[in-house]
Simulated scan of single mutants.
Amino acid sequence: MVATKYLQMIFPVFNTKRTKEIFGVNPTITPVREEATNVKIHLFSYNATEFTEKHFTKVEDCFPFSNTSNITWINIDGLRKEDVEKVCQQFKIHFLLSEDILSVGQRPKMDEVDDVMFCLLNMLYTNKDAAVETEQISIALGKNFVISFQDDADRDVFDSLRSKLRVTGSKLRQTGADYLCYSLIDMIVDHYFVVMEKLSEQIEFIEEEIIRFGNARSLARINSMRKELIVLKRNVSPVRELVNGFIRSDNDLLEEKTTKYFKDVYDHIVQATDLVENYRDMMTSMQDLYLNKANMRLNEVMKVMAIVTCLMAPATVIGGIFGMNFDSIPAIHNKYGFLIAVSLMLFIPLWMIRIFRKRGWF
């Protein structure tokens, strides 16, 4: 960790391609989603006393669980248009929602269509370059079922939730599908703080680098971090409105006692939004700090050059006077004239240094 930290000081960070990735989102252009090569389906069917866990590769294998009295959670990793349309048709999810599921770069939102509550938000991660990566998560809540759609089959934050479902008598097993939906959203929101903690470490490193060095690399890191905070804000801030939609909803799919849990998620997302704003303010302050330090360094250089110029002025004047081509110059033929001139050239600057220090000029 220490070695990496100081290697980052040696090599500059310039990533202009990231700017295009962040700002190259055009909602008027229909994005093309690549079809997943592999689809993994993880199914849980449970109640207080019964529990079933299965893994499938075909969505049709899940259809027998669409009309059971148990709570069913289907997590689909890897999206194909045909599979999504089949699932939506089987579980009576509106085709507009299936379009949202297959969309790319959607803003986090919450909808209620027919007998299904739907929300879309992004799961956040950080890669080895401290860049924020996003994965779109779509969650459909219906009567006795929750279906979640993911792009990446290799990572998510739901492992602890799966472990709780396997425990007989856990709160998840005692509650309905609305509580399961809350738990999924809560885990995604809680993971935002993990991402922000990693970004805060990078911000601390940048601040230390500015104070110690304050070179062009520092400015590049500031710009790079500001881009990542834009991504963070774009994905975190709308979730506040999403969660508020669940709180204000009077849909029969949500039990009244579940509302207080969504209020807890709302508090967390408000806190996360405030932290993002604080990070952005810190980056702005760091940029000002960098510019102020650069100006101070320039002022110090100019002050040193001005002092050197002042100290050299007496020698220049004395040398210029006795170097003039006049026939009669006082003491021009004095045998001690050279020593007197050199002594004056040394004594006057020393006397000037004493005066400057006495007045606090350096």
Rank of each mutant, 00 (worst) to 15 (best):
A131Y: 04
V104A: 07
H333D: 15
I340F: 14
T259N: 06
T175C: 10
R173T: 00
I41Q: 02
D327S: 12
C62N: 00
D115W: 01
E60D: 13
R162W: 11
E35Y: 00
I76S: 03
F205P: 11
T284H: 08
I318K: 07
I93D: 09
K335C: 04
L298E: 02
E50F: 01
M296A: 11
G169E: 01
I206D: 03
L219Y: 10
Q174V: 02
A341Q: 13
V13N: 08
S200C: 08
K5H: 04
N299T: 08
I10L: 14
I230N: 12
L229N: 10
F118V: 04
H55G: 07
K5Q: 03
A48I: 01
D77A: 14
F149P: 10
R226W: 00
T37R: 14
S218A: 15
I22L: 15
A272G: 14
V270A: 05
E241F: 09
Y125P: 00
A131N: 04
E241K: 07
V39G: 05
I247H: 09
F193T: 01
F56S: 05
T72D: 11
W73H: 06
H55C: 06
N26R: 08
N15A: 12
M282G: 05
K92M: 06
E35D: 05
D156Y: 09
N299C: 06
C181R: 00
L229K: 11
I71C: 11
L7P: 01
R359F: 13
P238A: 00
C88Y: 00
A48S: 01
A3Y: 01
S183K: 02
F63C: 13
D252R: 08
S170I: 01
M302A: 13
M196F: 09
V104D: 10
L346F: 11
T28F: 12
N278I: 14
M196K: 07
I185L: 10
K20F: 15
L242W: 02
A48E: 04
I332G: 06
N215W: 13
I329A: 12
V146S: 03
D151I: 09
F145Q: 09
I147Y: 04
E255M: 06
V236T: 12
I307W: 05
T259E: 11
A272T: 04
V32I: 10
G24S: 06
M117C: 06
Y266E: 02
F326E: 00
F11C: 00
L344P: 12
Y125A: 02
K58D: 15
V132Q: 08
Y261D: 03
F193I: 03
G105A: 12
L7D: 02
